[in-house]
Nucleic acid binder design. Structure first.
Length: 586
DNA sequence: GCCGTTTTCGGCCCGACTGTTTTCAGTCG
């Protein structure tokens, strides 16, 4: 079972418990305790589900190593049920809790506005077995009490993809611009996962500072591209824009804007952890500010900036990219937050494809070597590497491959570059299913260093895949494992690898893991970057540009590095040219 | 059911919006 499947199961159990805590129970004597007990059990299961979904290792592997209980949110009881699940394929307890529940209720719960209780009612009382049937029932007016049910169903059907960062930014920018045309808007900022620079964004969150909330709400809901208004209250509103994308707005007075920035940037998990931390100090946090619980007249203390908000709590200000509740609060308290790498620290791009035709196995770049070098100069880089794909193995003899690579090397040696100091002759080489490299020794000798990557045979058992990769990485010319999981966002899951083994190999043999900055890859993923950094593995940044303008993607890779707690020292692209030349021959 | 720099017992984040059961439940972020 995958982590996602386990998370879904735990959420289903949580939903089942919600049904066993009827509202009426609280009115009966003794019912309150039972309802409350379930209430926290529900939260516990939901938290466990979240934790599993966000875990950086497969739960099955943790179970193999008897480390289930090390996942925060999984305790003795859930660990025992999961143990049974892994051993026998099912859990008696989970089955008991969910006994008699119509399976379709979980599908129905995917519709916004339908939770456990509504889902159960729809499935049980109206006998609705699918989204399609729900739609039919809604059209005939049988469904009451769920706002915009038809539209919500439609959006649920279409919503399988999350937004990639550049696209989400565009949408947010256009909305922020629109909001700023209203004079009472003092400030408008995009927050949420977009500000935290998560790899994909579910919906767009925007905060506005104003002294006239009503006017801002009116203006927001009149956004020309708005397809419909989901909600509109005094402090928040939501609209749908083309692409079935939800945009949430929250407003706050300028003197409390810091608290709103903090609240609305999230993540949810960070905020929950922060509020629990604050509670222990007798403080209650919200988007309005901070309340001291012990004082009777508990006035809300306001904050204009986030820095002041965190400082009041005794914490260093935490960069948005770190706010995921993975140790940042503890680090901020101990003044041990990492000094995160920045775009300006990057001195090189280590994966670029030019149009120089060496009859490659995969797509060639479209910009000439000269154009790429010009762009590198613009970006102020010290050095770059040309990393076209290897010539296809099927179409060439070994001798032909070496000839093509000779031509490429000669071409690179003749390049005239002005500001940039060095262009490395590299190659992105397929890792064949058996772990071999499709380039003969004589061809590899022509390279300064090589990248290797997986471009086929993605489905392979974990240990076999790990062996495959390590065998390719072992060649002395190979320095970089490029887009290591081979995932494509919204399209393809990553391959399965034994990461501790990969990390160990990379660290001891000084190989580097790439952070591929293409917004559709962002690979290594941030959680694995964090693991790698903790392990002491060095990282390499590349844009995988197939057009010179794609070299601007570096910002997205840097965001991934920052989300993985990477500092300058963790990234080889931050080395000066002379330092880099030393490490590539190590 | 989870968890521990107030606690191994007794707590558990906080507020907004909708619809409607006019004081709250359900859902969401």
């Amino acid at each position: 079972m995958t982590n996602l499947e386990i998370a879904e199961l735990l959420r289903a159990v949580a939903a089942a418990y919600q049904l066993t805590a009827p509202a009426s129970a609280s009115r009966k004597r003794g019912g309150r305790e039972n309802a409350d007990k379930n209430k926290f059990k529900i939260i516990a299961y939901q938290r466990a589900a979240d934790a599993v979904e966000h875990a950086s290792s497969e739960l099955k592997d943790l179970w193999d190593d008897k480390k289930l209980e090390e996942v925060p949110g999984i305790g003795k009881s859930i660990a025992e049920h999961l143990d049974e699940l892994f051993r026998t394929g099912k859990s008696k307890h989970f089955e008991e809790v969910m006994e008699g529940l119509p399976p379709s209720m979980f599908d129905l719960m995917k519709v916004p506005g339908v939770g456990a209780k509504t889902g159960y009612k729809l499935a049980k009382e109206l006998g609705i077995k699918s989204l399609g049937e729900l739609e039919k029932a809604a059209k005939t007016g049988k469904i009451k009490g769920i706002p915009n049910i038809l539209k919500s169903i439609e959006e649920t059907k279409g919503r399988t993809r999350r937004l990639l960062l550049p696209y989400a930014s565009q949408i947010a920018d256009s909305l922020v611009e629109w909001l700023k045309t209203e004079p009472s808007v003092k400030e408008a900022v995009a927050l949420g996962s977009l500000r935290r620079k998560a790899a994909t964004v579910g919906d767009i969150d925007i905060a506005v500072a104003t002294n006239n909330p009503q006017k801002v709400m009116e203006h927001f809901t009149k956004y020309p591209k708005a397809q419909r208004v989901l909600e509109k209250g005094e402090a928040s509103a939501s609209i749908i824009v083309p692409g079935d994308i939800q945009v949430d707005l929250m407003v706050q007075s300028p003197d409390s804007f810091g608290a709103l920035l903090q609240h609305f940037t999230g993540s949810k998990h960070h905020n929950i952890a922060l509020r629990e931390y604050a509670l222990k100090k007798g403080l209650s946090l919200s988007e309005y500010g901070i309340k001291e619980l012990k004082s009777q007249n508990s006035k809300v203390i306001k904050f204009e900036t986030e820095e002041k908000f965190y400082k009041f709590l005794g914490l260093d200000c935490i960069e948005p990219e770190l706010r995921e509740d993975i140790g940042e609060i503890e680090a901020a308290l101990a003044h041990k937050l990492p000094h995160l790498v920045e775009l300006k620290d990057i001195k090189a791009d280590l994966q670029i494809h030019s149009d120089f035709d060496i009859e490659t196995s995969h797509d060639l770049g479209v910009s000439s070597a000269e154009e790429v070098v010009g762009k590198a100069n613009e970006l102020g880089y010290e050095y770059i590497a040309f990393t076209e794909h290897n010539p296809s193995k099927s179409g060439h003899s070994e001798k032909q491959i070496v000839e093509l690579l000779k031509k490429k090397r000669e071409k690179i040696e003749k390049i005239n570059y002005s500001r940039i100091q060095k262009v490395f002759n590299s190659l992105e080489i397929d890792i064949m299913p058996d772990g071999s490299l499709p380039v003969p020794e004589a061809g590899l000798e022509l390279l300064d260093f090589a990248l290797v990557s997986i471009h086929g045979s993605f489905k392979m058992p974990r240990e076999q895949m790990t062996k495959r990769v390590l065998s390719a990485l072992a060649h002395p010319k190979v320095k970089i494992f490029a887009h290591p999981t081979a995932r494509k966002l919204n399209e393809r899951e990553g391959v399965e690898l034994n990461w501790p083994e990969i990390f160990d190999f990379c660290k001891s043999k000084s190989k580097w893991l790439e952070i591929n900055s293409d917004p559709m890859r962002l690979d290594l993923p941030d959680t694995l970057v964090h693991e790698a950094v903790k392990f002491g593995v060095k990282l390499s940044m590349g844009t995988d540009a197939h057009h010179k303008d794609n070299m601007d993607f570096m910002q997205f890779g840097v965001s991934v590095a920052r989300r993985g707690w990477a500092q300058k020292d963790d990234i080889v692209n931050c080395l000066s040219l002379s330092e880099f030349e030393e490490v590539i021959i190590k």
